[in-house]
């Protein structure tokens, strides 16, 4: 599903952020990406979502060479990935329904399909009945679940989460992680960047550990 082959990323200002990173995530595999802050976790995720391009090496996402993708192909690559952020990145002036529906509208789903899928996604994260609420009326954990619903509503084969529990207390974090496990069990590839070691250790999944831009475990 996702293959890194000797990937390096160099910024002109800070030098090498990632050095010779190679790993392979199978279809339906779940893994954690960990490391100290500044180790390159976010950069690695950005390379997968083509927010940045790698300086050397190859990234294969679902058989596509991400680095060779043309500007016009990037939107279609991103639709294969459900992105989840630490700060949720929800539109505050839109309802929960509209937030979750956004990827469907972008992908061109019709008005028969959209409500059905949005409700299914909200049902899955346990927020059915809150469609008409605005994000600010929800708790942090609920907002993150809206973010997750938005990420999976389009049924991407892969979920990338950047510190998804960074703003949540341990109990809520465990709930969110449990959600990710459930996605993994239906065949979604999940990669979660987190520095919450205790949480990661509670769960028995593969851990990719970055240290100063190099993969030291995984």
């Amino acid at each position: 599903m996702l293959k890194f082959d000797k990937v390096s990323k160099r910024y002109p200002e800070t030098g090498d952020v990632l050095r010779n990173v190679s790993f392979h995530l199978q279809h339906g595999e779940m893994a954690f990406l960990t490391g100290h802050s500044g180790a390159g976790k976010s950069t690695l995720l950005k390379l997968i979502a083509v927010i940045e391009r790698c300086s050397r090496g190859q990234i294969l996402l679902d058989g596509h060479n991400v680095n060779q993708a043309k500007e016009s192909q990037i939107p279609y690559l991103r639709r294969k990935i459900g992105l989840i952020f630490q700060d949720y990145k929800l539109l505050q002036d839109r309802t929960v329904f509209d937030n979750v529906a956004l990827p469907l509208l972008i992908a061109g789903y019709g008005h028969h399909e959209v409500p059905r899928r949005v409700r299914a996604a909200l049902d899955k994260v346990g927020l059915l009945g809150k469609e008409r609420k605005y994000p600010l009326a929800l708790s942090g954990g609920e907002q993150q679940r809206v973010g997750i619903a938005r990420a999976v509503v389009n049924k991407p084969p892969m979920i990338l989460a950047d510190e998804p529990t960074g703003n949540l207390d341990p109990e809520l974090s465990a709930e969110i992680m449990h959600l990710f496990e459930q996605f993994q069990q239906v065949g979604v590839t999940v990669l979660i960047a987190s520095h919450d070691i205790s949480l990661i250790n509670q769960m028995n999944y593969r851990v990719l550990k970055l240290d100063h831009g190099q993969l030291v475990a995984g």
Binding site: I51, P75, R78, R79, K89
Partner: peptide, 16 residues
């Protein structure tokens, strides 16, 4: 801007 960035992140084309 924020809305545009989010739309881009979830796979919106420029024409969208």
């Amino acid at each position: 801007r924020e809305e545009v960035v989010i739309a881009k992140l979830v796979g919106a084309t420029n024409s969208f």
